[in-house]
Nucleic acid binder design. Structure first.
Ligand SMILES: [Mn+2]
Length: 729
DNA sequence: CCTAGCCTCATAT
DNA sequence: TGAGGCTAGG
């Protein structure tokens, strides 16, 4: 389930972006997400046990997109079920079985479409499917790793240890496992939402020195997580209030004061809950993961002495090193612990040649260094995150950087800014300030700056349409029908039109030192990096320069004085003050972009020029862009994609079965057998299924006979026929 | 008024 | 898994 409502809650820590900003880096993927979506296209075949590689192809499209962006992907898969999640897991299985039976029932009644629909929603991602994808990846020298337990913690380990620069997932849990950067909702073009840990404190509404990952995790567990349901009436908001109020670090103690702090006297915090709370916390902190360098299982963070063995057991129990290794590389089924494959990275990789592609831009896919290589080095220099491949062909080539510390934009309230999206005006602006490509090559610096400032505004407004933000309640909806004038200004009763547009800026930038770019124009820009604040490596992490500890020491919270000031600034202002400040800022600072004036005065041109980092940097990046980057993303991915073939699936190509025929046959057979599922069960148990068998046989080559039988087994079990309990009616 | 909880829906081609 | 809508209860 993840943490309900966490992504919207983390709005202030989120940015819309493209994965290409991690070009040159490494990305770890929560592959279950891809498999699950990919399985939709072939749900019926999967339910019928028919061979299909559609889900593999689907996943490889994403892989190819990443490769096309010069990103090294590491696919991470789920392993064994965690003791902590046993009931959740069995509940899910029950639901799936129920849905499958219902689907069978619907199909039997002739409602084939509805039945198929239900079937689609009750697909189970088997490890066999994962293995097929793993095999396809091995063909292309792409690293895969099966987590000892949850992929979540494994992904966090890869991110924290610096092996992966960012995690791609749909699961909000990744945030509380300690990931630094997580990329949510990534589509096949690479667009998604980046959530960064060093901005969490903004979402919680505290200054960064009052923030800790411990607090964040406590808050999330309190609001209800996979390992522990929440107390009645407690959600993220209440949990956040409590965590911010309490100074007690010992949660077992602190929780006793929960009801009084929240004024909920009916709330009963039992000792059982408090124990379970600590167990859940341990499961997040100390879950078993696999270290690819040591080739053995370690804890996500080393347990402290106060952690009991029982609690640790809850977070996964160690297995022998060899089994752990075989499991990690995908040779063993995590459920049955049976051998299913015989991959050996030490011998396999050396014999393989690099896969070639027809891509116009490169003859070969870069051979990334495998994490299984004994001499694998963590990328010392993290990728330039400021780099962005354009997804906006119209504006391609235009780059501008806003140094927002100079602008010192105050934080606007989300409620208000959400109101101010005005698409007509945005389009108007784009029209006004967009140039065609040939022109853009020979533009003057000031031209670019002007257009970019305008478009940055639209970029920011685009951001407000982020899926994360869409759900925000709209307090003005009833009072304001027209958005010609900002509702926030109506609200204030005065139209401060001069700075109206400034009020639209959202707090894109948190730290004074961070530079923000337009989403439309930001391309490849070498920006000065923030100094990295490094923690000491914990014992569980491979010793490298880039090792960050999961839990912040005092050092790690080091910020520049300016950054702290800015945090204070953001957190302390009310809307009214913000508006006042804006006026002050505009008077006192030279570099305030007067958006309202559309930068039409020469004065402003000069001013804006200064906000370029430096002219030389600017020139360099422009030429680099033209040389190295594809104009449109689709071009490169589609070039890559056809080259992907999967030999061990090719042999299945002749085994196409008309699935609806097969599905119908179930219905037919079922009605022949007295029309009840119970009858089917009986038939299944005594292995008498002549009709089904013959239908399948007709389409299956002899050579695949064993698979046919397997398929039938699958089919049967998929409709719950092997279960003793019949339908309830 | 806000919050949390419950319900339904979608995920690909 | 998340998104989004709707509602009862504090
Ligand atoms: Mn999870």
């Amino acid at each position: 389930m993840g943490i309900t409502g966490l992504l919207p809650f983390l709005e202030k820590a989120s940015t819309k972006g493209n994965i290409s900003q991690f070009a040159g880096g490494t990305v770890a993927i929560d592959t279950y997400c891809w498999l699950h979506k990919g399985a939709f296209s072939c749900a019926e075949k999967l339910a019928l046990g028919q061979p299909t590689d559609a889900y593999v192809t689907y996943c490889m499209r994403f892989v190819n997109m990443l490769l096309g962006n010069n990103i090294k992907p590491i696919l991470v898969f789920d392993g064994c079920h965690l003791p902590a999640k046993k009931d959740t897991e069995s509940k899910r299985r029950e639901l799936r079985d129920k849905n499958r039976k219902k689907a069978a029932e619907l199909i039997r009644l002739g409602q084939v479409a509805d039945g198929k629909n239900l079937l689609r929603r009750s697909i189970d991602i088997s490890h066999e499917m994962a293995l097929n994808l793993i095999k396809a990846c091995h063909e292309r020298n792409i690293d895969c790793i099966v987590a000892p337990y949850e992929a979540d913690s494994q992904l966090a380990y890869l991110n924290i240890s610096g092996i992966a620069d960012v995690i791609i997932t749909e699961d909000s849990d990744l945030t509380l496992f300690g990931c630094k950067k997580i990329f949510f909702k990534m589509d096949v073009a690479g667009n998604g939402v980046l959530v960064e840990q060093d901005r969490f404190h903004l979402a919680m509404g505290v200054r960064s020195e009052h923030f800790s990952m411990d607090k964040f995790r406590y808050m999330c567990i309190l609001s209800g997580c996979d390992y522990l349901p929440s107390l009645p009436g407690i959600g993220l908001v209440k949990a956040c209030k409590f965590i911010n109020k309490t100074a007690e670090t010992d949660m077992h103690k602190a929780l006793t004061r929960l009801s009084s702090y929240l004024n909920m006297k009916s709330l009963d915090v039992s000792i059982e809950y408090r124990d379970a709370f600590l167990r859940a916390d341990v499961t997040f902190k100390h879950q078993l993961v696999f270290c690819p360098f040591k080739r053995k299982q370690v804890r996500l963070t080393p347990p402290t002495t106060d952690v009991t063995p029982e609690q640790l057991h809850y977070a996964g129990k160690e297995m022998p090193d060899d089994l752990a290794w075989q499991l990690a590389i995908g040779n063993y089924d995590p459920m049955s612990l049976k051998k299913i494959h015989d991959y050996d990275p030490d011998t396999y990789a050396s014999g393989k040649s690099i896969t070639r592609t027809n891509s116009w831009k490169a003859a070969t896919v870069v051979k990334h260094d495998s994490i299984w290589n004994t001499d694998f080095k963590i990328n010392k220099k993290p990728p330039k995150e400021d780099k962005q491949t354009t997804l906006w062909p119209d504006t391609f080539g235009k780059v501008t950087i806003l140094k927002t510390s100079d602008i010192a934009l105050p934080l606007t309230s989300p409620k208000r800014s959400y109101e101010e999206v005005n698409e007509m005006e945005q389009e108007e602006m784009i029209k006004l300030y967009t140039r065609n490509k040939s022109e853009s090559n020979k533009r003057s610096c000031s031209d670019v700056d002007v257009s970019n400032l305008q478009l940055d505004t639209s970029g920011l407004e685009e951001r407000e349409k982020s899926p994360i933000l869409v759900r925000r309640a709209n307090p003005f909806a009833k009072t304001t029908k027209s958005l010609e004038i900002s509702p926030s200004l109506l609200d204030k009763g005065k139209n401060r039109s001069k700075f109206r547009n400034l009020a639209r800026f959202r707090p894109t930038v948190v730290d004074n030192n961070i530079l923000t770019e337009s989403k439309f124009f930001a391309q490849t820009t070498d920006l000065p990096k923030l100094p990295n604040f490094k923690n000491c490596a914990t014992a569980n992490y491979p010793a490298t320069e880039k090792c960050y500890g999961l839990y912040q020491s005092a050092d790690s919270k080091a910020h520049t004085a300016e950054a702290l000031e800015y945090d204070n600034y953001l957190l302390s202002r009310t809307d009214d003050q913000q508006l006042e400040c804006k006026e002050l800022d505009i008077k006192n600072e030279r570099r305030i972009p007067a958006v309202e004036d559309r930068m039409e005065t020469s004065q402003n041109h000069a001013v804006i020029q200064e906000s370029c980092i430096s002219e030389s940097t600017y020139e360099e990046t422009v030429t680099e862009m033209h040389g190295a980057l594809p104009v449109a993303e689709e071009e490169s991915t589609s070039d890559l994609q056809p080259n992907y073939t999967k030999p061990n699936l090719l042999q299945w190509k002749n085994t196409k079965v008309n699935s609806s025929t097969a599905l119908l046959s179930i219905g037919v057979l079922n009605s022949q057998n007295n029309g009840t599922l119970r009858a089917m069960q009986g038939a299944a148990k005594t292995n008498r299924l002549p009709r089904t068998r013959s239908v399948n046989k007709k389409f299956q080559p002899v050579k695949r006979k064993s698979q046919v039988e397997q398929g039938q087994q699958c089919l049967l079990s998929s409709f719950g026929f092997q279960k003793k309990t019949g339908l309830q009616h």
